[in-house]
Design a protein around this nucleic acid. Structure first.
Lengths: 343, 343
DNA sequence: GTGAAAGCGCTAACAT
DNA sequence: ATGTTAGCGCTTTCAC
């Protein structure tokens, strides 16, 4: 095994100089730096992680806690993982994926044995058991998702209230006078996520302000004939224009198919706004107006917050809510009649 | 931080005794052991992973390399991850999930920096680039999936040839005289996996032996009307009974729906055998006869092989192919007429 | 059956 | 701008 001692010998410097060249924590003359780096290259040197962690009290590994269940849509998680891994590598950190199977005990082991020195936790629910464990461990931690009681931990989440408002305001501006928000299917987690609750509240608030009727429904899985009834209600009575808010890409896709199948033109007869990633909204059979928060940006924010803590006690004072944006596409642009677009 | 020194002091023994109590690598009197364990409990001791790795030249971490792409069906990977993690923990090993995004360079870093001391690689293709990298690294490694040239690395894979034979033999026994094997959809990886290639060869071989016509098709995604044509061909001409082999659960589900929709009774009119997990086969609209290899068993085999290497040079002499089994369900049991069941 | 002591390969004061 | 040195918390010879 090639050690920093070998590098030092070949470069004709002391071992500590080699260390300082790597960490950059003290100034090195260009010539020395060059000689050391050359020696490293020549020997194919890789610093030993254990030794570094032991001496430096820092593992340079962060634990990314992903609650993988059979339900998990990997596609949605992937951009997060990629962004986080890349951002970590930029700071010379490795990422270990912690699957939830070991639960709280797993987090304890990882922390106490000094395998990781920070946690990034995805998909945190309102009363997530892990929050307490993590708070007790005292390692730098960022939660993705807002718990009711963060216990002093830093969290980052998309502003659900704003997302709901945006969706409803857009439909209203496009002429809808009665709205249905289609949420998570029955059986799926719903009340557990702060974002979802806030979304519904925000949607309701905006509907009230605009004086339009709004209702939240959860479709039964999987046959899901309920949407037909919803559609009928939305268009019945002639003259009353309906609008649909789809809380998830799945719902959006489904609604779109059903509307088209039933002979509607989603761009004209019924407004539709979906909460989903831009690329998904773009690729549906009809481009769907959508509300989204870029997940890469979201993830980067989380990592930045984490490294701020790692560098030394940045308090969770910085904005923790990510503001979503609305992108107008076909499903709300055709009927823009009664009110101004920025109503 | 509580160290083994603290434990030693409290238990009134030397630090090395504490170490030996943990490793079990030398005999300790019951009383001493009890005192030490009590002290550990009292102090809430957790051995420091870096120190242990540095002194012991073993990280007690294994890298589980999962090639996560947007296409990845997480549901299928999950039992593997769970089984592997559990089996590793039993041996006091932690698992870090290595996503493929960093590719070969990532594996190098993990190995050279001494972050992991073994690799378990999932979903290995016939000419997987990673195989060469891994062989060069020289760490204990088990590949899940059989490369054309394993470079001396241990691999574990399901016997695809046998799987194909089993499926065809069952259909023939159930009276099919012409067969269609429906493989991966166009666009999905197909020729890359040894298992799939062997499956088709095995199916062809069995068909030839039984003197029935067989053909392999790949459905186009996503509308997939092709199956209708297949169905028509299978039932046309009266009297010639058809059989379908579905290579994946998705295909099986699809075929089943289409057959039922078209007014066929899959248990009577057309034989169907799917390559998929038992629980999936069981839960389809009609229980489908299936060929499977239990993934937990498969995973456990891989882990066992890995720890055999870790303990010291077990050569890849043990059986590396996992034999699949067929479970007869509704879709082949109704028409068992012409030949004996074990034909 | 148990202890003492020498490292494992780094980092980070403290030197100069 | 660089070198010296004392650990980090464990494992593992030796010794008894």
């Amino acid at each position: 095994m090639v050690t920093s001692k070998d590098v030092a010998a070949l470069a004709g410097v002391s071992q500590s100089t080699v260390s300082y060249v790597m960490s950059g924590s003290r100034s090195i003359s260009p010539e020395t730096r060059a000689r050391v780096e050359e020696a490293m290259r020549e020997l194919g040197y890789h610093p030993n992680a254990s030794a570094r962690a032991l001496a430096g009290r820092r593992t340079h590994v962060l634990g990314l806690v992903v609650h993988v269940t059979a339900r998990t849509e990997l596609a949605g998680v992937l951009p997060f993982i990629e962004t986080i891994t890349a951002a970590a590598r930029e700071r010379d950190y490795d990422v270990v994926l912690v699957t939830a199977d070991e639960g709280r005990a797993g987090l304890e082991r990882l922390a106490r044995r000094g395998i990781v020195d920070a946690f990034l936790v995805m998909d945190v629910t309102r009363r997530d058991e892990r929050v307490e464990t993590l708070a007790a461990l005292g390692l730098p931690t960022v939660l993705m998702g807002r718990p009711d009681d963060p216990r002093g931990l830093h969290w980052v989440d998309v502003d659900g209230g704003r997302a709901g408002e945006l969706a409803v305001e857009e439909l209203v501006a496009a002429g809808s006078e009665t709205l249905v928000v289609i949420g998570e299917p029955i059986g799926a987690p719903s009340g557990e996520h702060r974002f979802i609750a806030d979304f519904e509240v925000g949607a309701g608030r905006a509907a009230e302000r605009a004086d339009v009727a709004a209702e939240v429904v959860r479709p039964p899985e999987p046959g899901w004939p309920g949407v037909l009834a919803i559609r009928d209600r939305l268009v019945r009575g002639g003259g009353v224009r309906g609008g649909i808010v789809a809380r998830t890409p799945r719902v959006a896709e489904r609604v779109l198919h059903l509307l088209i199948e039933a002979g509607f033109d989603p761009a004209r007869d019924i407004g539709l706004v979906a909460m989903c990633e831009d690329d998904v909204a773009q690729r549906l059979r009809v481009p769907v107006t959508n509300v989204s928060a870029d997940s890469r940006q979201h993830a980067r924010r989380a990592v930045d917050a984490l490294f701020a803590q790692l560098r030394g006690g940045a308090e969770p004072a910085d904005p923790q809510l990510v503001t979503p944006t609305l992108t107008r596409r076909a499903t709300t642009s055709a009927r823009r009649v009664r009110r101004p677009a920025r109503g």
